[in-house]
């Protein structure tokens, strides 16, 4: 039997890789993929606790997280396409109109 810590450490590692990706990358699409990585890390924690505690609410929540992730990626990618049409770039350093 694998102890619960292994799953949680894997989840923490994936979450931190996602955070570092969001903080360091300039390409809007890769930033977006890092966000998906973080969502998946959270899902892994949910499923781990659900399975170890014998309660299916965690897995139901993962289902809803996946729904929201699908909606989010559809809208987010549409925003990226609209952005590219207007600025001809998806480098997030050059998209700075709202920056003070």
């Amino acid at each position: 039997m694998i102890p619960i810590e292994f799953y949680l450490v894997l989840s923490a590692f994936m979450f931190i890789t996602g955070v570092v990706g969001v903080l360091t990358r300039k390409n809007a699409i890769i930033v977006f993929m890092s966000i998906e990585l973080m969502l998946n890390a959270a899902n892994l924690s949910f499923v781990t606790f659900s399975s170890f505690l014998g309660n299916n609410i965690g897995q139901l929540f993962v289902f809803f997280v996946m729904t929201v992730a699908a909606a989010e990626s559809a809208v987010g990618l549409a925003i990226i396409i609209a952005l590219f049409r207007n600025k001809l770039t998806i480098n997030i350093d050059e998209i700075n109109i709202l920056k003070w």
Partner: peptide, 25 residues
């Protein structure tokens, strides 16, 4: 972790639908 439903949905929704959307964009 014995989460069969979530495993299948992960492959269909994430690896299938969402990543195809990413690749197209």
């Amino acid at each position: 972790l014995n989460a069969q439903f979530i495993a299948v949905v992960q492959v269909i929704v994430y690896a299938g639908a969402i990543m195809v959307l990413f690749l197209f964009v």
